[in-house]
Nucleic acid binder design. Structure first.
Lengths: 254, 254
DNA sequence: CGAACCCTTGACAGAAATCAACTAAGGTGG
DNA sequence: CCACCTTAGTTGATTTCTGTCAAGGGTTCG
């Protein structure tokens, strides 16, 4: 593990409050490794042996069934993933592959479980992290069930713009087919959905999205904190609330 | 609270391992109340004040957006619900209403949070409970994204049969329109989906489902523990694994 | 008994997936 | 450096799936 990485991990909400001694022990048991793009890290169904942390790059969490495959999330630095499987000592429900060249740290699940049993502060942090993950997936499921594909795309654009500080223009953070899969539609339909938002103030120029009429977009997107997550401008220094959804160590939004 | 209820709550995985003193204190702060059918208990967006426990009856967790409404889960005795919102001290992401006449116990969220900070065993139980909830929603999202409506219905029938001890026949545990909403389709389509399974060994007679050809049904359903949950026949006395999905205190499957 | 309500069925409309064709961009190997 | 190949993305045509609307049978409950 590189020198600068340990303090970065220590800053994550999950590890921030634990005892230094326990943190150091966890880190000693950890492995760090670099992977090229498009490499499979985890297969769904395998036993969960390691908690993973993305230090650089990006990792896609996806699921397969028969011949279908769908993206469940994309994890960016610095964040953990597949925490729940490690805790339950159960098979991974999702597979993971690198989207780009990535640097990953792996902490043995066994050590993790041992640590939250002896370190109450770490246990509390784990509770908080899991509750956030849970709420994140609930939002994802709500979005899938309540919005149609055009509304999902509109809301997604809305969220990204908001994350960029209410920017009128931003670059899509991943390949469009990946976004399409995350949003539960085909690449073709993603393309069409964006195009159909043109009368509502959305223009796409290659990887760039330009919002020309936010009011009209709002109208279609119907953004709602109970689906799209809390407003990142609403500062929430308290641990008890959902953190902003793209801060290091927080949620797995593309 | 009735005399027999406290020991029942104590048996839940969430409360089983905590210190007696802390359990007693939590119970003292709790309210018990009976509600008629179809009564709203919780509205999404409200601050999470109480952890709820269903002692009798059944509670539907649902979500609304614009004019759409969808069932996210049905909780049956004895189980907790909306744990994550309580932990994060954040707004409920889902609403809740009674399906039938129900008896509910409510534990102030504040006391809950205070308790897992001072009782390490309770913290560990909370971690385990949350991880289970998380995995449950991930499965739900996977099912929605990977299976079409007929496959979802087939898999649902498969799960219910398995839960009834691989029974060839069972009674649907809720109104069909509720099941349809949970499975992400309209009541009309649920009806048609079941009918379309007739050539694959499924007959519906009112509220009763009869499986005449399990092999054919398996073929359509493609049941998979990574979507449908672990096999309840696989006994898992260890706390670390996902428990059977309909045992008291465990997951929110209809 | 009437009034809801649930469920089913049919007809239709709309949404989304699939298939096919084409462009553009990026990478590879000569 | 260029020809070639692969891949992402877009668009159109078509099929399939799903939702909507409407009607009717059956049941429950006041």
């Amino acid at each position: 593990m590189r020198d600068h990485e340990k303090p970065e991990i220590r800053k994550l909400p999950l590890f921030r409050d634990m005892q230094t001694e326990n943190f150091e022990r966890l880190m000693q048991a950890a492995y760090a490794q670099a992977f090229p793009a498009q490499l499979d890290l985890i297969h769904q169904g395998e036993p969960a042996d390691f908690l993973h942390i993305v230090m650089e790059g990006a990792v896609e969490l996806y699921a397969k069934w028969r011949s279908n495959e769908t993206t469940m999330a994309v994890v960016r630095p610095v964040s953990t993933f597949i925490l729940a499987a490690c805790i339950k000592d159960a098979p991974y429900l999702m597979s993971a592959r690198t989207v780009e060249k990535s640097r990953i740290i792996m902490i043995p699940a066994e050590d993790l479980r041992a640590t939250f049993r002896i370190d109450p502060d770490f246990a509390v942090s784990t509770i908080s992290e899991l509750a956030s993950c849970y709420r994140s997936v609930v939002r994802h499921a709500k979005e899938l069930k309540l919005r149609n594909s055009r509304e999902r795309v509109a809301a997604y654009i809305q969220r990204q713009s908001r994350r960029a500080g209410d920017a009128a223009s931003f670059i899509l953070p991943a390949e469009k087919k990946l976004l399409a899969s995350y949003l539960g539609m085909t690449p073709e339909n993603f393309s069409r959905a964006v195009k159909s938002l043109q009368p509502f103030g959305v223009v796409m120029d290659g990887p760039r999205i330009i919002i020309t009429d936010r009011g009209a977009l709002d109208q279609v997107a119907g953004t709602n904190p109970l689906i799209d997550g809390p407003d990142p401008s609403a500062e929430s220094p308290r641990l008890e609330t959902d953190g902003p959804s793209n801060i290091p160590g927080h949620l797995k939004v593309i």
